[in-house]
Design a protein around this nucleic acid. Sequence first.
DNA 1: AATGAATGAGTTTTCATTCAT
DNA 2: GATGAATGAAAACTCATTCAT
Lengths: 208, 208, 208, 208
Amino acid sequence: MGMGKPAHEAETAKQPRTDRGRRTLRKLLDAAAIEFGEKGFHEASISAITARAGTALGSFYTYFDSKDAIFQALVRDMSEAVKVAARDALDEPASALERERMALTAFLRFAAEHKEVYRIIDEAEFVDPESYRRHYETTGARILDRLREGGRAGELRGDLEEAHAWAIMGMNVFLGLRYAVWNGGERSADEVAAIAHDLLARGIAADR
Amino acid sequence: MGMGKPAHEAETAKQPRTDRGRRTLRKLLDAAAIEFGEKGFHEASISAITARAGTALGSFYTYFDSKDAIFQALVRDMSEAVKVAARDALDEPASALERERMALTAFLRFAAEHKEVYRIIDEAEFVDPESYRRHYETTGARILDRLREGGRAGELRGDLEEAHAWAIMGMNVFLGLRYAVWNGGERSADEVAAIAHDLLARGIAADR
Amino acid sequence: MGMGKPAHEAETAKQPRTDRGRRTLRKLLDAAAIEFGEKGFHEASISAITARAGTALGSFYTYFDSKDAIFQALVRDMSEAVKVAARDALDEPASALERERMALTAFLRFAAEHKEVYRIIDEAEFVDPESYRRHYETTGARILDRLREGGRAGELRGDLEEAHAWAIMGMNVFLGLRYAVWNGGERSADEVAAIAHDLLARGIAADR
Amino acid sequence: MGMGKPAHEAETAKQPRTDRGRRTLRKLLDAAAIEFGEKGFHEASISAITARAGTALGSFYTYFDSKDAIFQALVRDMSEAVKVAARDALDEPASALERERMALTAFLRFAAEHKEVYRIIDEAEFVDPESYRRHYETTGARILDRLREGGRAGELRGDLEEAHAWAIMGMNVFLGLRYAVWNGGERSADEVAAIAHDLLARGIAADR
DNA sequence: AATGAATGAGTTTTCATTCAT
DNA sequence: GATGAATGAAAACTCATTCAT
C-alpha cells in the first residue's frame, strides 16, 4: 500500500529478519491490496497475488499463515491509513464544524484516490468482522471526541452523544460511496463536504 | 422470508406450476435467507440450503439456475421488503421531518427484526453489485422525493438535493448497523430516531 | 477386499442409499486396498485410488471424509477378515494345541494370499493407532480365551495368562512376516506351523 | 540418542571436520530421534527437527542429504543400540535358557526406557524397508546362534532352526510392545521375562 | 417434480530442498 | 559452516452443477 506506516502487521504477518525479506513482504502486501480490491476476497487467489508480486507461490506462506491472515493484515493497514489521512487534515486549528468539514474532505479525497481501500474495508464485514467492527468503532469514537471538544468550546451543542457521531460517520461513508467511489468527477470533494457541513450547521428545516 | 410479496422473483426463479412446487420454492427461499444471513454468501452452500429446506439437492436446480440466482432473488425480495416496511410507516399524513423520523423508526425496527436482511443486502455489494446499487439508488431517490415534497410545502429548505438524501440515508443505515443490528436493546428505535430527527431539524451547532 | 463382510464400515463410510452407490463404495474400498498395500499410506493418493476405481475424484468424498477415513474403514475391514479366516479354520473340534496350530496355519495362508493386509494393518500403527491397538488386543484376547479353554479341559497348563497369549501372537505374526510375506515358498505353512506347535507343546529345552 | 556409538553413520551422514560440526550433527540426530519418535516419519518435519536442535534450517543439509538419510542413520544407530543393550546383558556366562531370559529382560528395559526406538524401528518397515529387514534378520540370526550354541552344549534341543529364532523374536517383540511400550508399570520386565522363560523351558502343555 | 449420486475444475496449503549471503 | 529466505511440485479437499433414475 505504502499509505502510511504498517500498522498492526506484527500481529498477523511473520516478521522478516533480513532486508530481502522485508522487501518481499511489502511486495506481497501491495499485490494483495490490488488483487483484493479488484476481485474481492473470494475471487482473489493466492497464486494471483504471488504472480503480481513476482514471487513464488510458496513465498506467500513464509509471511502469512493463510489468505485470511493477509486480508486481516491489509484491513488493519488500511484502517490505519484512513485514520492517518483524516488526522493529517486536522493539523491546523479550526472551529469544530470546520474540522468535520476538513475531515470529510480528506476522506473523500482519500476514497477517490484509493477506491480499493473502500472495497476491502467493506468486505471485511464478511471476511474479518472483528476488524470491521473495530474500524468503525474506533472511527466513531474519534468523531465523538471531536464533537465533545466542540461542545466544551461552546461551538457545538452540549448534548451530543455517540449516536450523533455514528450519524455523521454514516453520512460521510455514504457520501464517499456515492461521490468518491461510484462517481468520481461528478461532484468535487469540496462541494460535497460543503453540503454536509451546511446540513450539520443548521439542519434541513426551512428557516423560520 | 415471508416479509411481503416476492418481488422480482419472476426474473430469477423459475415459476412453479403446481402448488407443491410453490411450496418447495418458498421453503428454498426461506432456507436460503437463513443460511446466507448466518454464514454469508461464500460460506453458505447449496446443500446446506436444501438440507434446511428439507428437499433433495437436485431440487434446487428445478427452481434456480445458480447460487447467484437465488441470492439475487433474495436481495430483491428484501430490498422490496425494506421499502414496503418504510412505506407502510408513512400511511398517515405528517410533516416532512416527521415523515423522516417515522421512516427511520420503521427501518430500525425492521432491521432489528430481520438482522439477516441487513447482512444479505450488504453482501450484495460483492456478490451482485447491480442489485446493491439499485437498492441504494432507489432508496436514495425516494428520500429525495420526500425532501423535495417537504421543500415545496415550505417545511424544508428549498435547496435540498441528492447529496442531502444520501447523507440522510447513510445516517439511517449506520444508526441501524449500530443500534439495531449490533446492539439490540441498548437504545430503542424511538430514542435513536429522535436524535436523528433533532439533528436534521436544527443541526448540531450551539444555539446562538 | 471382498474378504468377508464389511465390518465397521458404518462407522466411517457414508452409507449409500442406492445400488449404484453401493457398487461405487465397494470399488473404492477395493481400489484403496490395492493402492495402500502397494504404496503405503503416505505415498498413496486419493486420485490414484479413484483412478483405479474408475470413478471421478470427487466421488471419493461422497463416501469418505478423508484419506484417513478410508484407511480406517479398510483396517477394520481387514482386521475382521483376519479374524474370520482364523475362526473358519476352527470349525471342527480339536485339542487345544491343535487349535493353535490350525489357527496359525490359517493365518499364514491368509497372509501369503493377502500380503497387502499385513502391510496395511502394520501401517495402522502410525496412521490409525487406535485401530491397530484394538486389532491386537482383540486378537490377543481371543487367543487367551482359547488357552483358558484348554486349561479347563486339562490339555494346557492351568496358569496361562495374557502374556502367554501375547507371546504366541508375537510368534505367529513374526513367522507370518518371515515365511508368508517375505518368503512365500521357502517353507510351507504346514511346516512352519508344525515347528511352532512343537515349541508350544514341549518348549525348547533338551529332553532330560 | 546418546545410546551408544554412532553405528553406520558414515554411510549416510556427512562427516563433520570441526568440533563445532560434530556437536551440530549430534544435536540434529538427538532432535530427530525425539521428533520422529513423537510424530512419526511423515508428520515430522525438517524444520521442526532443526528448531528442536537449535540450528538453522539450512544447516540440516550440511549433514544429511535428505529426510530419508537422517531417518536411515537413526534406524541404524538404534538397531545397533538395541544389539548393544542385549549383548551387554550377556556378559556373564549362563545357561542357554538363562541367556534368553536375560536378553529379553534387557530388551524390555531398553524398550521401556526408549519407547521412541521401538516406534522408529517399526516405522522403518515403511520408510526404509531395507534397514528394517536387516535389523530383524540380524537379530534373528543372533538368536539362532545362541540357540545352536545351547544345542551344542546339550542344554537345548539339537533341532532348533531359524523358525525357532523368529518365533522367539516375535514373542519378545510383542511382549515389549504390550508390556514395555504400551503399559509401562503394569508388569515388571522380570515378571514378563519369567513367563517367557517358562514357556520356552517346558511349553504350555499340561504336565503329564 | 424429486432424488441423490457423479463430476472435475479450482484452490489452498505443506514442506523438502536449493540458494544467496 | 551457518543462516534463513525462496522455490514449486504435489495433494487433499470443496462444492456448484449435471445427470440418471
